Amino acid sequence: MTAMTRTFRSYPPALLITSTRDDRVHPGHARKMAARLREDGHEVAYYEFVDGGHGAAATNEQRAFLWALTLEFLWRKLGATAQRRGASLAIVASRGSAAARSAQSSA
């Protein structure tokens, strides 16, 4: 499909993470997807690990970085949305905690 014939849709911001050494899904697929989404005006964050394989991270340090990258992305995208809507992130986050469940069951 060319840019002229594609149907344009609204997509949420995307985080694409891949590894240069992925032996199952070539990183070129993620690169092309990121490029196509950006071409169509969508917000995309892209990170490519040099090491690692299909799981992206090769070491515990890289795994920690992957989680930090993911959580920072979610915090920026979902946190801003929740704040605009007036929701308290602390309340939303604590709904699934054991303390919140025990408080709800004793009430």
Rank of each mutant, 00 (worst) to 15 (best):
A3W: 03
F65C: 01
Q83P: 02
V25Q: 01
K32C: 05
R38Y: 01
A107C: 04
W75G: 07
M4N: 15
Y11D: 06
S105Q: 05
R95S: 10
E48N: 02
A57Q: 01
N60E: 08
E48I: 12
Q104G: 00
G53H: 07
S19M: 04
A87V: 08
S102N: 02
P13N: 07
T18E: 04
G52E: 05
E43V: 15
S94H: 09
R63Y: 03
P12L: 13
A103K: 09
F49N: 06
M33T: 13
G86V: 14
W67Q: 07
A82Q: 11
G55W: 02
A56W: 05
S105T: 13
R95P: 00
D22G: 04
A34R: 02
A30D: 06
R85L: 15
T70N: 05
M1A: 13
W75K: 11
T81M: 11
A3N: 12
G52Q: 01
T5K: 10
L15D: 02
D22Q: 05
G41S: 08
S97E: 00
A30Q: 10
Q62E: 14
G79K: 05
N60G: 14
S88Q: 09
R36D: 10
Q83F: 14
D22W: 01
A64Y: 03
Q62P: 01
L66T: 06
M4T: 15
S94K: 09
V92P: 00
A98T: 02
W75A: 12
R95Q: 13
A56F: 09
L66I: 04
I91V: 12
H42Q: 14
K77I: 15
H29C: 08
A58R: 03
P27I: 11
A35P: 00
Y11G: 01
L71N: 14
T70I: 09
I91L: 12
A99P: 00
A58I: 02
S10H: 11
T70Y: 05
G41D: 04
A90P: 00
L69K: 10
R36Y: 04
R101A: 06
S10E: 14
F65D: 06
M1H: 11
F65M: 03
I91R: 10
Y11C: 08
M4V: 15
S97R: 00
A93C: 05
D51Y: 04
T81A: 13
A64S: 11
A57K: 01
V44P: 01
S19N: 05
A3R: 11
S105R: 14
M4W: 13
D51A: 13
S10Q: 10
R95N: 08
S97T: 15
T20Q: 12
G41C: 03
L16D: 03
R95Y: 05
G96Y: 01
G79H: 07
H29V: 14
G41N: 07
E43L: 12
S97W: 00
P27E: 07
G53R: 12
G55V: 09
T20M: 07
R63W: 03
R63I: 02
K77V: 15
H29F: 11
A45F: 05
D40M: 09
T2C: 09
L89M: 15
K32W: 06
D40G: 09
S94V: 04
T20K: 12
S88Y: 03
R6Q: 10
I17V: 15
E39V: 04
G41W: 04
T2I: 11
Q62L: 11
F49V: 12
